[in-house]
Design a protein around this nucleic acid. Structure first.
Lengths: 263, 263
DNA sequence: CTCTGAATTTCGTGC
DNA sequence: GCACGAAGTTCAGAG
């Protein structure tokens, strides 16, 4: 409040006021929220229609548009990226048109009653982190194979972090020098994960590798997937996410200590 | 406006006011929107943290919670279904806690500044349709195989609408009596679609069927998928979505006419 | 309950 | 740009 105007909230605006406020926000690329009795129509990769009802329309500065109904997590309509936004008053309604070029999609929102419009006048962006991703589990396996998978494995390419299309998560060797392919899943593994691993193992065998082992590493596995895995001669290793988290945390601390000693 | 209070909008509320308004809305299961300078912390299947910044928090009557930042289509944090919602004031902040039992997940949103809170007092739910789903394309193929796929096929089981796990979209026979399996994709088909079809065809062959044909029906196909498909001895049929839409529409009109004649 | 597959999936990354 | 794979995927249907 003392830090200057952060939000403009207009309650029950007239048609022309609503259009004016929306146009100003869209033109100056300020995020906005509109609530009201609206209909929505989408045409593009599919086609859909949302009947008149209370909707919440969110328009962000990057051009993403989200139309929420009163129920559920998923939006009724949306547009992840728009190339054109139009605001007009047509037949006593506020009409917003959101066009995306590629793929060609059009989202039209018509509001016969606008409850309020809120504009973020001086938006403050905050950072965002997510931890314990699949990639971090992969790193934990590469760094601590004994602790996570229960046997000593060597992964010469463990620094290759990004997964190329058609390549498994980890390629390495066991203590007897046999090639080992590890497929990592952060959640319970299904049949698709087994088939994926099988493809990589067969590809390696076709390239002339001998005695290739395939290991599926996941917190759990479905019965059907387990069955397919055993029929395919592959192995399953259960991983303990809490343990992995602990290993990574200690790894981080160690790294921090090393950095400290280097300084 | 003439129809009674539809929204309550409170701008820049004090801490205790905000808590009061939020509690009342949550308790009476009214949808609400809050905008402000907030942080969010999630712990459950993964763990994430959103730093202080402008957030839009949406809480719906069914318990779904969505936290949007200033960018992108996807929410920063969410909870599709909550079993507990808590609202308190802690250390000069509004703290909302959203708990989900299964899977066990906790989302905590702390707001150090509340720009506004809007409550939908008498929500109006609107209907929703989506058309031209994969299932409708499948129906069009079953009803008009010549028009969509360019040859006369017969699908004895075409009325089975729901796809069971491990079963292809359509089983039928061509004009020479050979079994035909059709896999339908509403969007450009990738390698995964070809592998799926191949599994179904091989399953049918293993069950003793002879001369089984596999047809992948989609608006387009990727190069890699086309290559895999040809190596696997499967067929591709390009489908024209506009044509399918037209066929279904005429089908609907016909049905309506029949209904009219029956009445 | 779990499993399976679709989604206007979106999103990132490699090519 | 396209393609492939992950996602706190969500969601709906079947067993």
């Amino acid at each position: 409040m003392g830090e200057g105007l952060r939000y403009t909230v207009v309650g029950s605006p007239r048609l022309d006021e609503a259009v004016e406020v929306l146009r100003r926000a869209v033109f100056s690329k300020k995020p906005l929220v509109l609530a009201g009795l609206c209909e929505a129509r989408y045409e593009g990769r599919a086609a859909s229609e949302a009947e008149a009802g209370d909707k919440l329309v969110i328009v962000k500065a990057d051009g993403s548009v989200i139309v929420h109904g009163l129920k559920g997590f998923k939006p009724l309509n949306w547009q992840p990226d728009t190339s054109y936004i139009g605001v007009e008053s047509v037949e006593g309604e506020v009409r917003m048109t959101f066009v995306r070029r590629r793929p060609r999609e059009v989202l039209e929102v018509r509001c016969r009653e606008v409850g309020f419009i809120a504009v973020f006048e001086s938006p403050v962006e905050g950072g965002y982190w997510m931890f314990l991703s699949e990639d971090e589990i992969r790193n934990a396996i590469a760094s601590f194979p004994r602790e996570v998978l229960g046997e000593d494995l060597v992964f010469p390419e463990k620094e290759r972090r990004l997964r190329e299309a058609g390549y498994a998560d980890l390629y390495g060797y066991d203590s007897e020098g046999r090639p080992v392919i590890v497929e990592v899943k952060r959640v319970k593994a299904g049949e698709e994960a087994v088939r994926q691993l099988l493809r990589y193992v067969e590809k390696a065998r076709n390239m002339g590798k001998r005695g290739v082992r395939g290991i599926l590493a996941a917190p759990d596995i479905s019965d059907a997937a387990r069955s397919l895995l055993e029929r395919s001669g592959l192995e399953f290793r259960r991983i303990d996410l809490k343990r992995v988290y602990g290993l990574l945390k200690s790894g981080r601390e160690r790294r921090t200590l090393e950095e400290f000693l280097e300084s």
